[in-house]
Amino acid sequence: MVQQHDSNLIATDRRWPEGTRPSTDEIWHLLEEVPDPEVPVVNVVELGIVRELAWNGDILEVTLTPTYSGCPATHFIEEEIGAALNRAGLANHRLKQRLAPAWTTDWITDAAREKLRAFGIAPPQGSASKRSLLGEDPEVTCPQCGSTHTEQVSEFGSTACKALYRCKECLEPFDYFKCI
């Protein structure tokens, strides 16, 4: 993955005057501008990847929970978050990884689900209970035409978080963001 770092030498997105410290609320808003590298219509906050922000003295501690164990985007997301903080003048930060509780699609906000649908990805249906993991395949609505007349093509799609579906109404294939 090629990374493009800002090459600006004196330009800055610094938002807070030297010596002042933004509130965590302001930093949450800042991180809402960091898109998911694989599904750029949603950001890392509404996906539930950023779990906690806290000031520990002068250091901003950012707690992140990775989505899938092997998700190749995890490292990239950490770098993007770090870069966003640096650009805003918050170089004095520490990223911490928290594994438990494990990330779940239940943390994806309703607004993000709607953005996924508009982007052509069927959002996770229902909650990630044992039943939906082990039970019958969920009824997945086609993001193109809204039909529930769909079928699973493969349990695994273009990335670990998605399954491959096909709509039997409009005949379009689509990704389904599966529950975990």
């Binding site: 899938y68 164990s69 092997g70 998700c71 093509v153 493969s154 695994f156 670990a160």
Partner: peptide, 20 residues
């Protein structure tokens, strides 16, 4: 193709867990 994607994804999950 679907099987290739599935196998690749399973392999990636296993590698991620192995790293942990």
């Amino acid at each position: 193709l679907e099987e290739e994607l599935a196998i690749g994804n399973v392999a990636l999950d296993l590698l991620g867990q192995a790293r942990a």
